[in-house]
Design a binder for these strands. Structure first.
Length: 258
DNA sequence: GCGATTTGACCCGT
DNA sequence: ACGGGTCAAATCGC
């Protein structure tokens, strides 16, 4: 998406978030709903700032470690990069897929370490899917999630990208056509452990944990976060539109889960 | 006991 | 030599 279009969409989202907040407040919605709206507004504001910083095509991406991604020797394998915003600093990451953490490294110039995950079924089914998750230096509530390869095991992402805010910018034209990505898009939902000692300790989750709902009905982590996405992939646009035009439905499901 | 996580060591590309 | 990615033993939790 071009930057101007992105900015336009974000402005619309921002306006709707404010409108929603006003309505929720006026109609005496439950406190959790009002808090959620506030969190949404904060997340949108961050997204707008990021988009503003993306003029010239670098919306915070690649800034996390101070090095352009092209400098990474494995850049060619990068399939999708997703910048994820967590409104509240609670709850672990969960995308409905089964990931197993196999490493974590301090990255030069980055405040937070990078965590490495691979598919739980790597050995049993030979699934080569991996992802890297790193908290953004410039905004601790944002996460850069980089997916490598695609899941070749049977599991499919069950979490729909219900809160994709906006494509951040396009990936370099590095052969997405050969990815074999599942038809269902992947999404990240942030649930943080409260003030984690190590920034990345995302318990893997069994497929089906979300049951198609953007938030599970309950969680031992105490759901708090509304989750924003800033995605580097145009495939998310239809879901973006859904969110833009049906935000109330989304929040209804969230409120019910509280 | 089994599977997941942690973390230091090792490997590899630049 | 350095930095990023992965391995694998130790540890933890259910």
């Amino acid at each position: 998406m071009e930057d101007t279009a992105l900015a336009s969409e974000l402005e619309r989202l921002q306006a709707m978030a404010r409108e929603l907040g006003a309505r929720v407040h006026d109609e005496g919605a439950p406190a959790p709903a009002r808090e959620l709206c506030g969190a949404l507004a904060a997340s949108v504001d961050r997204a707008v700032r990021l988009a503003a910083g993306s003029n010239g095509g670098n919306a915070g991406r690649g800034k996390s470690n101070g090095h352009p991604r092209n400098s990474c020797r494995k850049t060619a394998k990068v399939r999708r990069q997703v910048r994820v915003a967590s409104v509240q600093d609670t709850g672990p990451l969960d995308d409905g897929l089964s990931w197993r953490k196999y490493g974590q490294k301090e990255i030069l110039g980055a405040r937070y370490p990078r965590a490495y995950f691979r598919c739980t079924h790597r050995h049993t089914r030979g699934c080569q899917a991996t992802k890297q998750v790193q908290r953004a230096t410039d905004d601790p509530l944002l996460f850069d999630v980089v997916y490598h390869a695609a899941h070749t095991c049977d599991q499919a992402p069950t979490a729909e990208p219900s809160l994709l805010l906006s494509p951040e910018r396009q990936l370099p034209a590095s052969g997405q056509e050969e990815l074999g990505w599942p038809a269902a898009t992947e999404a990240q939902t942030i649930r943080w452990p409260i003030e984690p000692v190590t920034p990345f300790s995302f318990p893997s989750s069994p497929a089906g944990a979300f049951d198609g709902c953007y938030l599970p009905a309950s969680s031992g982590y105490g759901y708090a976060a509304t989750h924003g996405f800033v995605v580097d992939d145009m495939e998310y646009q239809p879901q973006l539109d859904d969110f833009f035009f049906n935000p109330s439905e989304l929040f209804q499901s969230e409120i019910q889960s509280l």
